[in-house]
Design a protein around this nucleic acid. Structure first.
Length: 177
DNA sequence: GTACAGATTGAG
DNA sequence: TCAATCTGTACT
């Protein structure tokens, strides 16, 4: 069973999408070759109230504007001057909510958000790409059942600057192996 | 215009 | 433990 994820999957509350992305496959077509992997770690960012979000306070910049797109678009940006971070916009148009893809089930090849993008060869050219329409990247449901008991919820990584309230929200989701 | 820190990673 | 190095923001 291979079913491409469509708009109705992404246009839902972000925490729900972040959890359900676990166990889904991301497929990246590079020429005639494909690179793909199962998503095993995600994080939810829910602006404008979320102090850890780039859209905190309703802020809009050239970098973060893709966060405001309707669910199913790619929000990709560079951190620390060298690592791309793959996010998927969620919920409705105008709502700056997204899910960060932190790891794929590929061992050390993709065990961090920067490495996911390096493996999938993603960069600024994918900015605002529509995952429901793109011919070079999309997500698939391959019928793998994920039980709630196999999902671990933990605080998000690397956002201590957002203060204890937001950095302690358990909005990071990991698929137990 | 300058200064500074960040949703990270890999080397020492 | 620390440096790499682009982008946005808060200053002068």
């Amino acid at each position: 069973m291979r079913k491409k994820l469509l708009r109705n999957f992404y246009v839902r509350p972000t925490l729900k999408v972040a959890k359900e992305l676990l166990g889904k496959y991301i497929v990246r077509k590079i020429g005639k070759r494909k690179r793909e992997g199962k998503i095993i770690e995600t994080e939810a960012y829910i602006g404008p109230q979320d102090k850890a979000s780039h859209a905190y306070g309703g802020k809009i910049t050239p970098r973060n504007k893709a966060e405001y797109l309707i669910g199913g678009h790619i929000y990709i940006y560079l951190v620390y001057g060298m690592y791309w971070q793959l996010n998927i916009s969620t919920f409705k148009e105008g709502k700056p909510e997204c899910v960060l893809i932190r790891a794929l089930d590929l061992g050390r090849l993709a065990d961090g958000p920067g490495k996911v993008c390096r493996y999938l060869k993603l960069n600024k050219s994918f900015y605002a790409e529509d995952l429901t329409k793109s011919k070079r990247i999309w997500l698939e449901d391959r019928g793998e059942e994920i039980s709630p008991s196999s999902i671990l919820a933990t605080p998000r990584i690397g956002i201590d600057y957002a203060g204890p309230y937001w950095s302690r929200r358990k909005w990071r989701f990991v698929l137990k192996s």
